[in-house]
Amino acid sequence: MSGVHLVWQAAAVMVGSGVVGLVYKGLDRKLAARMQARVGPPLRQPFLDLGKLLMKETVVPRDAVGWLFSAMPFLAAVASFTALLYLPWGPFPPILRGYGDAVLVLYLLAVPALAMALGGFASGSPLATVGGQREIVMLMSYEFPLAVALVGVVWRLRALEVGPAFSLATISANPLWTAVGPLGVFGLAILLGCLLVVTPAELSKIPFDIPEAETEIAGGLMVEYSGTYLALFYLADAVKTVAMAALVVTLFIPYGIAAPLGVKGVGGQVLDVAFFLVKVFVVMFAAVTTVRVAMARFKVDQVVRGFWLQITAAAVAGLVLLVLDKAVMG
């Protein structure tokens, strides 16, 4: 693949997913508002927010570690956007396939959280420090079930010998549901459930918005961020939401719609991309929007206990079922 071609594709994916991320954020806010018997903001509100933030003054607190404080928003945004380049987009394989696999995506998704925590610590505010501690604790608690879910899928795929199992292109091209037996389907369903629980935690949304907890620590990590820096975090959040939902879709629902409908060529590709975006939206709606209107915020110790005990136990059970399935199916 030529370099120019690569740059062109990467730019398209980044801009496209940035726009999609903001549109979905708008949809999320509008739908949440409707479920709460409110009118809600207009759909384009995230764009207006972003534009406004970019115009605002960017303040660096006097007590902050300046360079760290300023670098972290960029790191968060870059990591979120980079994760997109390793994810398949419906019919299109990942742009940077061959340069990184599913494990790299996991790392890239963890980077914005780390960047926010570091930025919070660097800001010198006690509220942000508490937020930073909470973010790190959260990260340590949800990463394990997340990794188990991913490893479960990859391990079962490897047993099928269809290619490099850790490659998201392979995962996306080989839906597991039909390839495994009844035990495996059950195990996969459990892993999907775990991943859906991890999603709002990964994205710091209610009931897991503990690091930001507006009523407790006044925005926590974000309390000292303003202007362009806050806009970058805002954008990173929108993009990360899409990336996380896209990862769930890739791992568990990588089906296209064009082939069953018999649409071929460019039309089929457009249809598949559209279907992919719909699936991403459904995942976001199920795991983020509905959950955040239906629950109260947890405390950090409750989250840690829940993820380490119940969710990890469930994920391991799913993994064991997949292993048993392999033994049964041969």
Partner: peptide, 9 residues
């Protein structure tokens, strides 16, 4: 408690 739905209702 972070339960805004209940607040609005």
């Amino acid at each position: 408690l972070g339960f805004d739905t209940l607040l609005h209702l």
